[in-house]
Design a protein around this nucleic acid. Structure first.
Length: 432
RNA sequence: GACCCCAUCGUCUAGCCUGGUUCAGGACAUCGCCCUUUCACGGCGACGACGCCGGUUCAAAUCCGGCUGGGGUCGCCA
């Protein structure tokens, strides 16, 4: 049975790079029918926080992954000390000032990397390293090595920033008499400017993306596109589909620049392909956490709003800007609507109100019919009436199709808002 | 500085392993046209890459070497 692990350190939130490494591990494990193990590397008691751990586990699940085992290094200190002690007895390590140092028995070290092939190190910067600190906690390279061996990890999949740790670890495996596992070093995700993904580049944690209204499946899908490709020009696929065809050896060697534009596109694709009911669920809980929904908004209404915007938003948070008029009456007219409102169309709008107010079944077909009839009778062009009407209803010059917008808002609100625009003109254009 | 990794359109990538089918395919972004009540969506199209130099070969994006460029690591952090 193959055993694969992801080993996060709870000293920060799960960021994009970690999430992707986790996905590669999970995908590989599931693809070969192996076990997926989470190993929490919480040896740094000072910096490890429960808050971070909770967030990491939550993000992993949110992205659609599960695990078979979870271990905590903070509970295994005895084990690390025992193995370190063994090295001391064998003369491969020694104690000094309360710490234990491992002496590298260095010749030349070769890594057989599943993604990169052979990597050869001909020299190492040091001839020894601390494996147990003076506070008796293990150092990263040592606990990592002991655990990967004891937990029978068959392939260590991690970021390429660990390549230079690998020769030291291999020497430790050998010193301890352990079998050396396979390694696969995946490329890093880069900032748009090149270089490491950093806080300087906006959001980096999965949680932040969730809060911006990105869907878990879209993020998982996009992250997978960074460094791996199904190879058939397919770009939209689920973790589950990927699982069936994923090959760790097919992961790229080159670092990939994170593109918010492409993430937006993927996210929009997911939103478009979703059933309205499903989208409404997401919209509802998202807007609730943003404290955006007024009291008493009905589910059926929310569903109409979701459907109205389904094809035109990139992320859920776009609704906060664009769909405000669906929930609140207190909006003013945007600055850029001035040119539209310059000309007074009171008479025409009044005629429109008259036509609309007598409609019984206020649906899109009837609305459009009456709207066009009004245009016809007044000898106007569509845009003459469409633009001011949209501004009256939404406060903006751009938005969803006018007639569906009217249907969603309903007759009363439509007429009321149209009258408000007439008042605006009466008062000589003051934004009441 | 030392060690290591990497190198196809602006970006993500397919192709590279098993050289010819590729004057290099797809996607995002950008631009144009169409659709149209606005903005999007959708449709169509344009722009746009094998870093450079050598070598191997009848033939190289594909194999080899060098150079250049980018990245990573050098903590009793992980």
């Amino acid at each position: 049975m193959s055993r694969i692990r992801f080993a996060p350190s709870p000293t920060g939130y799960l960021h994009i790079g970690g999430a992707r490494t986790c996905m590669f591990n999970w995908l590989y494990a599931r693809h070969i029918g192996g076990e997926f193990i989470l190993r929490v590397e919480d040896t740094d008691q000072e910096r490890s926080k429960k808050e971070y751990l909770d967030e990491i586990l939550e993000s992993i699940e949110w992205l659609g992954m599960n695990w078979d085992e979870i271990h905590y290094q903070s509970k295994r200190f005895d084990i690390y000390r025992e193995y370190a002690q063994r090295l001391v007895k064998e003369g491969k390590a020694y104690e000094k000032e309360g710490a234990i140092f491992f002496k590298y028995d260095f010749q030349s070290v070769e890594i057989d990397d599943v993604i990169r092939g052979k990597i050869v190190f001909n020299e190492l910067p040091k001839s020894e390293d601390v494996i147990i600190k003076s506070d008796k906690s293990p150092t990263y390279n040592f606990s990592c090595c002991v655990d990967d061996a004891l937990m029978k990890i068959s392939c260590v999949i991690r970021g390429e920033d660990h390549i230079s740790n690998t020769p030291k670890q291999i020497l430790m495996y050998k010193g301890l008499g352990f079998d050396v596992p396979k390694f696969a070093h995946v490329p890093l995700i880069l900032s748009p400017g090149g270089g490491r993904l950093s806080k300087r580049f906006g959001a980096t944690s999965i949680r932040e993306y969730k809060e911006m209204g990105y869907l878990s499946k879209a993020i998982a899908n996009y992250l997978l596109l960074l460094g791996w490709s199904p190879g058939d020009n397919k770009e939209i696929f689920s973790l589950d589909e990927a699982k069936d065809i994923f090959e760790i050896s097919k992961v790229n060697k080159t670092g990939a620049v994170f593109s918010i534009d492409k993430l937006n596109w993927v996210n929009a694709e997911y939103i478009k392909r979703m059933k309205v009911e499903e989208l409404t669920d997401l919209v509802e809980s998202f807007l609730k956490t943003k404290d955006f929904l007024p009291q008493g908004v009905e589910r059926s209404y929310l569903e109409k709003v979701a459907s109205l915007f389904q094809g035109r938003i990139f992320k859920l948070s776009d609704l906060v800007d664009w769909a405000r008029f669906c929930f609140y009456d207190d909006f003013g007219y945007c600055e850029d609507t001035k040119t539209i409102l310059e000309k007074d169309f009171s008479k025409e709008i009044e005629a429109l109100i008259k036509k609309l107010s007598v409609i019984n079944d206020f649906n899109i077909e009837v609305i459009e019919k009456e709207f066009r009839a009004t245009i016809e009778e007044l000898g106007l062009k569509m845009k003459n009436l469409v633009h001011p009407t949209r501004v009256a209803l939404t406060g903006k010059r751009i938005g969803p199709g006018l007639f569906e917008t009217m249907e969603v808002l309903g007759k009363d609100k439509v007429c009321q808002r149209l009258n408000k625009l007439i008042d605006y003109w009466k008062q000589g254009g003051s934004n009441a």
